[in-house]
Every structure is written in C-alpha cells, then in structure tokens.
Amino acid sequence: MLGTIVRPSGAFLGTIPEGFRSEGKMPCAAVRMPGRSTIKAAVAEAEAEAFTPPSAMETGRKPMNLYEVLRVKKSASQSEIKSAYRSLAKIYHPDVAVVAKHPEESFGGCDFIEIHKAYSTLSDPAARAIYDLTLSIGSERRRPLAGVYNNNSSSGGFRRHSGFYTSRRWETDQCW
C-alpha cells in the first residue's frame, strides 16, 4: 500500500506515468451521484465536524494528514472512523463515483485508494498510535519511526502495506 507513498527519494518524482500517481485528485464537490441524497447528507455532517475546513480539499490542496483524508477529528473514535470511511467509500469508490461512463475521469479509484490507506492506518490502534506520534513530532524526520513500524510487521519487512504516511509526503521528502 505504501507503494507510491513511501517513495524513498525525490528522484522518483515524475517517473510514473500520468494517472498512476494518486496525489491531489480529490474531486470533492464534483461527485456525480444522482439520487444518493442520504449519503450526501451524512458527508455534509462529517465535513461540518471535520478537523480542518473541507474547503482545503475542495480547493485542490492535498490533505495534510490521514485525519483530513477521512475528514474526522484527531480524537475520533473507532466507530467514527469506520463510519467516515464508509461514507467516503460510497462517494469515491469507482463503482459509485464513475458510473462507468467517464474512463478519462476515472481517478475516482485513486481517491478511494487514499481513503482506504488512511482508514487502514487509523482503524488499527497500534498503527494509529505510531502515526499520531509522528504527527506530534511534526516536521521532524519520521524515518526511525517508520523503521520501528516495519519491524513490528509480520513478514520480514515486506508487509509494508498496513503502514501510514505522515503530514509530509514522501515524494517531496528529501531526507532519504
């Protein structure tokens, strides 16, 4: 899962074909979802309570952290996180978002991948704790913690998928 996120060096930026990267494509307001009013309402609620104003996403800015991706408070409970994930999935999952007609706009899939990444970190209490720690460290380097996390994972470091990314994107992180 960390594939495109834990990209170890800035050198990699721009090497992957267009449509292959997942960053910054959150067409929030532009969701085509006729008739799914119940969900819209739910999301509106989630946005109202969001940790940061939703406008950040609507203006195309990248979400700063996983909580912003899921549009929940940092103090959100597990059930709030699950609920937010589901509501977002119902909007951004390609099955509902794209309506199989706009292949050129099918970045919906990428958005869902981001949402799922955020969810898989925040829904795992251990991963979330480590992630919160990295957030509190702020702009300091997070590499040692990433190491800690990987050592905890089950199969010799290869299972990096349930990991997390931090407030800075690895693509632009020149530390490595």
Partner: peptide, 28 residues
C-alpha cells in the same frame, strides 16, 4: 508496481531508476 482497478483489471508497471537520477532510465 501493480495496479488493480475497481473492475479487477491488473496492470503491471516496471521501470529503471538509477540512484540519484531525477529521471527514469528509459520509458516505463
């Protein structure tokens, strides 16, 4: 890199990057 879309289509991408280089060595 492997990409599976919502309709379960699998695409495999591969390419070469030399350490320190800004661009990949040739097309993916």
């Amino acid at each position: 890199c492997m990409d599976i879309d919502a309709s379960n289509v699998l695409r495999v991408f591969a390419g070469i990057v030399m350490p320190g280089a800004q661009q990949p060595a040739g097309p993916f």
